[in-house]
Amino acid sequence: MDFRSDIIVEYFPFFMEGMGLTILMSVVGVLMGCILGFFIALGKMSPILIVRLPFIWYINFLRGTPLLVQLFLFHYAALPAILGSTTPVISVMVTLSLNSSAYVAEIFRAGLQSIDKGQAEAAHSLGMNKFQVMRHVLLPQAFKRSIPPLGNEFIVLLKDSSLGAMIAAQDILYWGRAASGQYLRVWEPYLMVALIYLVLTLSLTYLLNYLERRLDVK
């Protein structure tokens, strides 16, 4: 079997462009996911069932349905209905943000609930109010414990962003499919696509390991 490296060479600039978009969509997804996830975690920990219920079902829906189905739902139905129109990139970013917020919320909740209750008791006994206890005592410790699972979530998100190719967001996989379609070859483009994702996830893994060591996560 001959290996046509010229296809990879020709498409290389497009793969790099696709990589940029993949990184952008993943970073936006994980950042928005963290911000939203934090508030959803707080909502889900409310002692009042009526307040808790919408957050429980938000998480149930986003974790319990396939990401591709969510992507189609947002791209073809929800976002056009709300915004009037949408682009593939916006749809992917919105879907990834909401989807990851559900997972991140559970990560934060687990982190907060893993902190010994003596910590909050001690802080309250010193006269700190609920907000101060959360801000100065519980959150810093919970966040530190959340870093390893957050890193995993980021890696999963980066790979899942490839679903964007299904609605023609011009990410790495999109260009692989384009190359495959043009030359009617399957090995070269898809191996190249797999390789780029692997480089990205491995880089991220090393970066996260380094961060964990720096922050002395246990």
């Binding site: 001690a122 802080a123 006994s125 005592v137 410790q141």
Partner: peptide, 20 residues
């Protein structure tokens, strides 16, 4: 209650120092 608690110090069996 926060103001009153500030005037009552408490020491716990498990210390409960803030590890961070």
């Amino acid at each position: 209650i926060n103001k009153l608690r500030a005037e009552v110090g408490m020491v716990f069996q498990q210390f409960n120092l803030f590890p961070h």
